[in-house]
């Protein structure tokens, strides 16, 4: 491992980190704008052009607020909760292929922090750890509303992770690899997985809503019943971290959706651009394509939030266990039959 390699990776990681933070920041702005537009309002428009400095003002305000902490024996856990939520939200972006490669300074730079061969498992694993941030925060708050919020969040996440994992199994049977990079490469051109696995996509999408605690699955922080849910007792930037982690999660989920089902950085005619205009330009366009796709998903997340009311708790569990899981198992079986149709026909002597 030479030093240039370390520098190269550090730069990639830093850039990805910066972009994730930036996107999360501006998602808060976009959420307020989209919410306003869907409700015939105009949203924030005072700080900067179109309210573009609003996230900065919000951040400044949160930093300047008094840090209140409840009288709880679990001071350490109380402080560490938001940190876990934030860290896990940021860690997922490590395995996402943002583009193919740049050819700079006589060497190929992979636009991915690390291409581990179990990328999807890594993401699912980290996302499951994310629930600890919420659980620990809610538990350590020493407040019954926080505790109920945390319990709801964890049971919801555990239930929907099953369906999420199963929906991906069907996809993996088709692609035959767990590496996100290879999955993206297989989708070059317009061979997007969503055309082959629409049911798997639908289930994954619904589970992504549940995993990020977004409406219609935001029972963990439903204001009408639980004040603020797990972050009721939090104030200042600690609460900011929880809110921020939600947006970072949304960004990462959108990216994973784009990579798994919508071809990642691929766009039609990419190979032609590589031949005619060079690798670097083709990949700049590729990154652009990925961002357009994921911004579309972020918009969809917000659009749904301002359309559908929250599910009731029993409806949530009913949907997760009695509809999504059987549906994904049926999907796995259908995929298996289609993949092995040659062998099956041969076995039946057709």
């Amino acid at each position: 491992m030479d030093s240039t390699f370390i520098i190269e990776k550090s730069v990639v990681i830093l850039v990805v980190f910066g972009i994730t933070m930036l996107m999360a920041m501006y998602s808060t702005w976009a959420e307020r704008k989209v919410a306003a537009y869907l409700q015939d309002r105009v949203g924030p428009n005072r700080a900067g052009w179109g309210g573009l400095f609003q996230p900065l003002a919000d951040g400044l305000k949160l930093f300047a607020k008094e840090e209140f902490s409840p009288n709880t024996p679990n001071q350490f856990l109380f402080k560490v909760g938001p940190g876990i939520a934030m860290a896990t939200a940021l860690m997922t972006s490590a395995v996402i292929p943002w583009g193919d490669r740049f050819h700079l300074f006589g060497r190929d730079i992979l636009l991915q922090a690390t291409d581990i061969n179990v990328g999807i498992l890594y993401i699912i694993g980290i996302v499951s750890i994310g629930v600890y941030g919420i659980m620990i925060g809610g538990w350590a708050s020493n407040n019954k509303f926080s505790l109920i919020g945390a319990v709801r969040a964890s049971s919801q996440m555990v239930s929907y992770e099953v369906a999420m994992g199963l929906s991906i199994v069907a996809l993996l049977m088709m692609t035959g690899t767990l590496s996100l990079k290879e999955i993206t490469v297989q989708q070059s051109g317009m061979n997007w997985n969503v055309f082959y696995q629409p049911i798997s996509f639908l289930i994954f999408l619904i589970c992504a809503f549940a995993e990020t605690n977004r409406t219609p699955f935001d029972l963990a922080e439903c204001e009408t019943e639980l004040i603020g849910g797990y972050h009721t007792e939090y104030s200042s930037m600690r609460m900011g971290f929880y809110l921020f982690a939600e947006y970072a999660n949304m960004f990462v989920s959108s990216t994973v959706l784009a990579v798994l089902f919508f071809g990642g950085y691929n766009y039609p005619g990419m190979s032609w651009v590589v031949e005619n205009w060079g690798v670097n330009f083709a990949n700049v366009l590729g990154i652009g394509a990925l961002f357009i796709k994921l911004c579309g998903f972020i918009f969809f997340f917000m659009w749904v939030r301002w359309t559908i009311p929250r599910f009731r708790y029993d409806q949530l569990m009913h949907l997760g266990w009695r509809i999504l899981i059987p549906l994904s198992i049926i999907n796995i079986m259908i995929t298996g039959v289609v993949l092995l149709r040659g062998e099956i026909f041969a076995y039946l002597g057709l």
């Binding site: 989209v34 537009y37 015939d40 309002r41 105009v42 428009n45 659009w303 359309t307 559908i308």
Partner: peptide
């Protein structure tokens, strides 16, 4: 849900009622 999404997106492009 899709019907609902259709209704909300129509509002997205509507003239805003806000008076600045």
């Amino acid at each position: 849900i899709f019907k609902g999404l259709g209704i909300t997106i129509k509002h997205f492009f509507r003239k805003k009622a806000t008076i600045h």
